[in-house]
Design a protein around this nucleic acid. Structure first.
Lengths: 113, 113
DNA sequence: TTCGAGATTCTAGAATGTAGAACAAATGGA
DNA sequence: TCCATTTGTTCTACATTCTAGAATCTCGAA
């Protein structure tokens, strides 16, 4: 069951979910805003990119440079996309928590797993 | 939203769930066996106790020594119990993931959150 | 060419995760 | 009593992840 490097940290997981949710428009700022909005503990830009880099190194996400000359100022965006292995890693974490939560007094942890 | 020290690591979370699930019989060995059974990545005894200690320091769980003279050989057990703040921490993590998962193609991540 | 806006990279340190050897305590038999 | 055995916890050391904010980069407009 244990695959070296398949481990998914807690923050890594929410970042992965955010990227999945944002789809085509997932890049640094938008990801961060979504996390803030959802009530995730405040995290610095640095923390976010460090996590994105790690996820990419593990193959869970991939990134590409945004358009070369956008109609706005500022550096080009780096877009992120969740890969198949990323979805698998998310599922695995959920599966484990679901199993562990089975039988716990209903409602204690909230409506859904 | 961010409370200092309310952060819950990924392994901390599954350990917390295991303790909750086991109820009265949650101690080192039983917790470990449950985690193995559920398919959690193999973890050493040391890793488990280190995590339990950290959870206790944060106030998410408490521990007490087992009965003085059990009908068997071996050292006394140290039983663990999830405290209210522990349940709260679990809920918070679930709430955030649930929000982030909302809208993602149904079924992609499995049946339940 | 300089400035401001938008975005990413870098650096350093704290917190978490990992493993296994060492140690502790109780029981039962020699 | 003392030792081997069994059961369980503590200790030590290091790897990985998390966190923050300053520094840097890039582009368009003045």
């Amino acid at each position: 069951m244990k695959l070296k490097g398949s481990y998914l940290g807690e923050y890594e997981e929410v970042v992965l979910l955010a990227v999945l949710q944002l789809g085509k428009d997932a890049y640094g700022r938008s990801i961060r805003e979504l996390l803030d909005e959802v009530g995730e503990r405040f995290t610095s830009i640095g923390a976010l990119y460090a996590t994105l880099d790690r996820l990419e190194r593990k193959g869970f996400i991939s990134s590409r440079q945004g358009e070369a000359t956008p109609e706005r100022g500022g550096r080009a965006k780096r877009y992120f996309k969740v890969e198949g292995t990323g979805v698998l890693a998310l599922r695995e974490g959920r599966r484990i928590r679901q199993k562990l939560a089975r039988g716990i007094r209903p409602g204690l942890l909230g409506k859904v797993l």
